Amino acid sequence: MTELPDALRAALDAALARVPEARLAASVQRLMTAYRSGGALTAPALASAADVAAYAAYRMPATFAAVRAALQQATEAVPGWVPRTLCDVAGGTGAASWAAVAALPSLRSVTVLDQVGDALTFGRDLARASPDAALRDATWQRWRAGTEVPAADLVTISYLLGELSPTQQATVLGAAIAAGGAVAVVEPGTPDGYRRVLAARAALIEHGLAVVAPCPHQLACPLDGRDWCHFAARVPRSALHRRLKDAQLGWEDEKFAVVVALPGPAPTVPGRVLRHPRYRKGVVALELCTPAGTAAPVLVSKREGERYRAARDTGWGDTWPPA
């Protein structure tokens, strides 16, 4: 379960309390319809400060959880990676920036770009509550797809590409690569989101970056054409979140597709667990993406002792064998 940081949760709750709940609920339902149909959650969808607040209530917890999980995969693959500067492209109210700061304590400077002025204002107000100076002092800047991205050690592009044409996607990705650092792309964990991530992955490799997550190799995706690579982050729902989404469960699973690539040579990365492990009597079955570029099942028997116990503790998205 991935909780929002206490400071963000408190600041978000306080900001949402200033908007009538009926207004939030109406906006959330409209935004949910747009999101599920592949529509844009930008202007004019975010046409007012109340719409921005509704978007924050609806999407910030899930975006935070997905981006944090994605960056956690990268830090596990490259433990010595210590980016200092972050540029959050189309970062809106700042969920990905909060996630990056949580996953990467080395960050000292944050820039958030977005075309919606009200989203930037909302995000800036939330960030003032952060105990981390990088967020409190972040730069919140108006930006449109097609314009350059400031130089940064890490550029995050989360839940944006699906709102753009293929030409715009390539332009935004090219600008992110030109920023000179690592690039992390997160999209919904759907077949379409996976295909956008595959295209981004190909462009990153073509420009000389090394994929470090989730793939343990630089070869073609072994799932392409028969399945899609995605992961899940479990997100707790507050009472308000449940009411706004007309939901019953106290949690939801945010499914996402991701690629993270860094400048420099490719590191040695172990296999990645692609699905929930399956358990049979005395056996754990793991579906792995391997460093050889294949997707293959691995069966771990109880007779293997410590290896079996490690497999029992391994989850979807983890590396195998564990460090």
Rank of each mutant, 00 (worst) to 15 (best):
L219F: 15
G180K: 11
P236K: 04
E21K: 01
L41C: 03
D227V: 07
T147I: 10
A266C: 10
S97N: 13
A65C: 06
A119Q: 05
G208M: 06
R307M: 14
P297F: 09
A138V: 15
A54F: 01
R272F: 05
L126E: 00
A65H: 01
L24F: 00
R307N: 13
L135A: 06
R278L: 14
P61T: 12
F64G: 13
P131N: 04
Q141R: 15
L219P: 07
R68C: 09
G162W: 00
M32P: 02
A138G: 15
A199F: 00
G117V: 11
P263V: 02
P214C: 12
V110Q: 12
T63S: 12
P166K: 03
V52L: 00
H276E: 14
S109G: 10
C87A: 15
L288D: 11
P166H: 08
E187K: 01
E3I: 12
T290C: 02
A200I: 08
A323R: 15
K245A: 11
Q72L: 07
P322A: 14
L262Q: 08
P297A: 10
H241S: 09
V273M: 08
A202D: 09
A57R: 00
Q115T: 00
A138M: 14
A232K: 14
V19I: 06
V110T: 06
V78P: 11
T294E: 06
M60P: 08
P61N: 07
G181N: 06
T75I: 15
L173N: 03
E3W: 12
Q168H: 13
A40Q: 01
A62H: 06
Y35N: 04
A176S: 01
L46I: 04
F122Q: 00
P263I: 08
P291E: 07
V283L: 14
P263G: 04
L249C: 07
Y58N: 04
L41V: 01
R201H: 01
R234E: 07
A90W: 01
S97C: 11
Q72N: 15
A17E: 10
V116M: 03
L286Y: 09
A257K: 05
A266K: 06
A47K: 05
V112T: 12
K255S: 12
A102R: 07
A77C: 13
A45I: 02
G225C: 12
